[in-house]
């Protein structure tokens, strides 16, 4: 990636800032004590400490601090929720049926988001919808185990991949530099 040093520092500071803010918000939700200046100060210190640790561990980047893209995920979530409910009903019906008929399949899904974030989100979305579990994530495919053969619909996977790519902040033109 050809980023000038200055803008790299700028991006880096952005991650640090968004991570610290997110951690401070998390502290406020956890704490519930807003009247004590000591605790608020400690919270601010702890948020900075969490960011410092992230920096110290060399993980201060977009994957650790995706919080400035949270709104995209908020848009993705309702769709995923509907999918989760639908597939859950199918799987529960299968489990409950007295003469259970399973048609397990292992399929390879070739359409993947470009960034690692998007892939992780895609793989976890597959696992979150019962009936499909992402078994292995390779550089160019995901191996998915499906409980029923109806669940191995190519178009469905492609749709989910596109949506999770968008949710992880991928623009169509953006060729990301994640690991290949």
């Amino acid at each position: 990636m050809n980023v000038s040093n200055e803008s790299r520092i700028g991006v880096f500071m952005g991650y640090a800032l968004s991570l610290t803010t997110a951690m401070a918000v998390l502290w406020l939700v956890l704490s519930g004590h807003y009247d004590s200046t000591l605790l608020l100060g400690l919270g601010a210190g702890s948020a900075v400490f969490a960011s410092f640790m992230a920096w110290r561990l060399h993980i201060l980047d977009v994957e650790t601090s995706p919080y400035h893209r949270l709104w995209r995920f908020v848009l993705y979530w309702p769709w995923l929720l509907m999918e989760v409910i639908k597939t859950n009903i199918t799987v529960i019906r299968t489990i409950l049926s007295p003469d259970m008929v399973l048609t397990p399949r292992m399929v390879r899904v070739k359409t993947l988001p470009d960034t690692d974030m998007g892939r992780a989100l895609f793989a976890n979305s597959i696992t979150l919808t019962p009936g499909t579990v992402s078994v292995d994530l390779d550089s160019d495919e995901i191996i998915v185990h499906a409980l029923l053969k109806e669940m191995t619909d190519k178009a469905g996977f492609a749709d989910m991949a596109a949506r999770s790519a968008r949710a992880s902040g991928e623009k169509p033109a953006d060729k990301a530099g994640g690991m290949k």
């Binding site: 989760v84 859950n88 489990i95 399973l102 397990p104 979150l128 019962p130 078994v135």
Partner: peptide, 23 residues
């Protein structure tokens, strides 16, 4: 949970556990 007991192999049990984990 009962699905985890009922289903035949490890991979299919994953799906039953997924029901608990999600919905």
């Amino acid at each position: 949970a009962s699905g985890v007991l009922r289903l035949p192999d490890f991979y299919s049990r994953l799906h039953a556990a997924g029901v608990t984990d999600t919905l």
